[in-house]
Design a protein around this nucleic acid. Sequence first.
DNA 1: CATGAATGAGAGTTCATTCAT
DNA 2: GATGAATGAACTCTCATTCAT
Lengths: 184, 184, 184, 184
Amino acid sequence: MGGKGTKTKEKIRQQARRLFAEKGFQAVTMSDICERTGLSRGGLYRYYSGTGQIFSEILVEEYAAANKMEGESSARTVLEHLLETLRTEIMDKERSLSLAIYEYASLGNETFFAEIHAGAKKRWMHLLEYGMKTGEFKPVDAGQMSELILYYYQGLRMWSRVIPFEKQTAEYYVSTIKQMLLEE
Amino acid sequence: MGGKGTKTKEKIRQQARRLFAEKGFQAVTMSDICERTGLSRGGLYRYYSGTGQIFSEILVEEYAAANKMEGESSARTVLEHLLETLRTEIMDKERSLSLAIYEYASLGNETFFAEIHAGAKKRWMHLLEYGMKTGEFKPVDAGQMSELILYYYQGLRMWSRVIPFEKQTAEYYVSTIKQMLLEE
Amino acid sequence: MGGKGTKTKEKIRQQARRLFAEKGFQAVTMSDICERTGLSRGGLYRYYSGTGQIFSEILVEEYAAANKMEGESSARTVLEHLLETLRTEIMDKERSLSLAIYEYASLGNETFFAEIHAGAKKRWMHLLEYGMKTGEFKPVDAGQMSELILYYYQGLRMWSRVIPFEKQTAEYYVSTIKQMLLEE
Amino acid sequence: MGGKGTKTKEKIRQQARRLFAEKGFQAVTMSDICERTGLSRGGLYRYYSGTGQIFSEILVEEYAAANKMEGESSARTVLEHLLETLRTEIMDKERSLSLAIYEYASLGNETFFAEIHAGAKKRWMHLLEYGMKTGEFKPVDAGQMSELILYYYQGLRMWSRVIPFEKQTAEYYVSTIKQMLLEE
DNA sequence: CATGAATGAGAGTTCATTCAT
DNA sequence: GATGAATGAACTCTCATTCAT
């Protein structure tokens, strides 16, 4: 179980992920990954036949993790938990794959992301509708609110790689949403 | 003034802009630009020494235009005018430079964009504060609101290249902001 | 005698032969052979140190079989038997090694084939001379006739891999030779 | 007319032809051609995008030349002229493209050669039938005879690269055909 | 000024071959 | 004996960039 090969693949994904976060998708070459992992060209190609394949596996891992949504809790607890996760991610620019994802998507993998986005929106809408039903959330247009939550987040996540954020930027995001959904 | 050279440079920027909008920054090669403009290699290099230089000139033009902010009007009129402009841009995915800008920024030109962003934020804050002073806008945290406006916009602009938007997506953006600032 | 190793070698040659017939000599890689035989890299190299070695052993086998010439029969019977064999081979394009042989020869193994050819020619000449002595064959120049038989055959064998033959092509070969040697 | 580029292309084809004759199709790399022509990699790719393209242009040239068949003469004269041409080609192993052609055909370009072969056969059959009609040639089966002529030739042409021919080998070819067609 | 031929560095990819386990 | 991970050399191909004309 978990032979040497599996470990090497894992190491490759791990190191490649760092590279993608640093330089985006296109700027990462197979040679870069060789260097980082200490593998030879041939060794790397044994496992992955190109940066696209590595990247796509990384994404699948990543989103698989993201999709594990919480079990039984109040809408408010779930909301707070989610916002806290997003806040951390926004600040964590070192690990942000957003440029890479964006480039990758623009390179002809739109559908994949359209689906991811649609899934995320659906989950947010469910949460919002549930919270409104239980009276935990103020009444809002669930569709409109989900989009605000998602695109505002995307905007932040992308530019965090590029613009040095002021400390309160991520707080603003969280508190804006809370203000719109929760009674003060 | 405005000799043949100036015209050629203009044509280059024009065609290059289309290419950057289509393919992002890195994917555009000098050859692509030769082809589009009908210039020879040598000819192109006479005017610009690389894609970076062309792109940076395009950006300067672009933002110079964006910076011409309106003269004397009510805060509400200015707001509505600005939102209308943004709404149009969001839908106009064909002409969106956002991928290119983002790649370019990630390639080591962060400062440039940090400045642009800071300028935009300052202008929005002025408008918001002015509108609150005149009583046209509801009281909000100007910093928080500006960031919402800017990052939400960025998120939309970027993903419009990649995700097929529903029609109301841009409307949501506008109406969210209006709801937060104006009395219904 | 005939341990596991011998069997494995046999299996390797068998599968490799199919590959050589399909793709010629150069296009077959050690990996291809691993795949076909189900052996690992290391396993394969234990038996053969390269495609050249495998191929040369296959050829030796092949020609050893071809060299077993018939015992006591009339020249006419031997001729008819040989022609029938050749006719079958000509049509059997799936199993033709001719491309592979030709490539292999061109890669610096000319001598080997020169010898094979010389041997074949000698055997044909013996047969022809014998048949003429017994009066079974019409008088011909034995050297000239052998070359016709051999090179015409080679031409057919090679192009059968490439050109879709009409049905009578192999018949023509046989009947041409018979007409030249036997009384109608 | 005939700018520098045209000359370079010509030089490339010329040198590449020599390489193909020496080593066959697959064994010739773009690097080999660079070396022979003295061009850099980029320089070569400016004109041809791969060995296949170069080879196919060479073949077109070659066969265009071969197709120019003679005008008004007696069947016998035409025959003698053709045989003389073939005889020369058989001996000229340095310039034989046959291995290369054969490999190239086996690589999926069968149709091209099937057509060439069909054309050649048709032309030979015309000649034979014409000669028989005028009484210059002995009566033979035109189809059978054409195939003998063509495949015997192919067999010779191919193996001439590999087997050191005896002097009379090409003579045999010519005289066999003459004996079959002409009164002694 | 403008052309387009040519360069050369470097990315992608494939394989024969070796070697620790 | 057997495995399959890993190496490294060689090949294909692409571009930014230069330079003679």
